[in-house]
Simulated scan of single mutants.
Amino acid sequence: MVNPKDKSIVAGESGGGGGGGGGVSLGKGAWDCDTNTPIPPEKEALVFEEVATMDYPFEGIPTVPPRKDMDHFAFFCGGCRYRVSGQPDWTVAKIKQALFDGGIARANKPEGVRNTPGIQAWSDLALIYAGQRMEDEKTLAEYHVPPGCKTMIAIEGAKLDQRRPDPDSAYWN
């Protein structure tokens, strides 16, 4: 939605299926799964510790300092970033449950638009780190996920299980 005062986009007011403050089409947004609430766009950089400072300058240029928050992970899903508490010794299933309980199903497209069932339960999620699909019974530490990792992917498992189109299909044209 457009703010009539200054013609800026107001996050959280636009439609869309899963952005953390706006529609996925904006390509932005964040959601806090611990509180099941959006992270305002103006606080997103602070929450994810992405504010450049002069603590570790590079040739006089501010840089992002090392992370201090080792108790939260971040997952990208459907154009939105999801923040959830967790530890490397937690199982993948436990993290998936926390993400689902915290609202990651918001990433589902509307019923008539999607070609997959959507995220209906925590078991419908697939988590990916370093190109590997993680198994539910293993811990994050078994995949060498560091504490406070902010670069993981959560995706509907059905999307990963779909077959590729036939080589003769018009899809490839």
Results as ranks from 00 to 15, higher is better:
T91A: 02
G20H: 05
T116N: 08
G12C: 11
S123P: 03
V92C: 07
P147I: 12
G18I: 13
Y56S: 09
M1F: 10
I61K: 07
M54G: 03
A130I: 01
P117V: 04
T53W: 10
A45Q: 11
I95H: 02
D32N: 15
G27V: 04
F58S: 00
R164E: 08
K7V: 13
R81G: 05
P4G: 13
K150G: 08
A30S: 01
K28V: 11
Y129D: 06
T63G: 04
G102H: 08
G102Q: 02
A126L: 09
E44F: 11
H72F: 09
S85D: 07
R81T: 15
P4K: 15
T37Y: 01
G103I: 13
D136T: 07
E156W: 11
D124I: 00
K43A: 13
P117R: 01
A45Y: 05
V92Q: 03
L127E: 09
F73N: 02
G12F: 04
C80M: 11
A52I: 00
V64E: 00
P4Q: 14
R133V: 15
P41V: 12
I128V: 15
K159Q: 13
W172M: 04
S169R: 01
P62V: 05
T139D: 09
V47D: 05
N3A: 13
N173H: 15
G102C: 07
G86D: 05
G29S: 07
E59Y: 05
K28R: 10
A105R: 15
E135K: 02
A141V: 00
G18W: 08
W122C: 11
G18F: 06
C149V: 04
T53M: 07
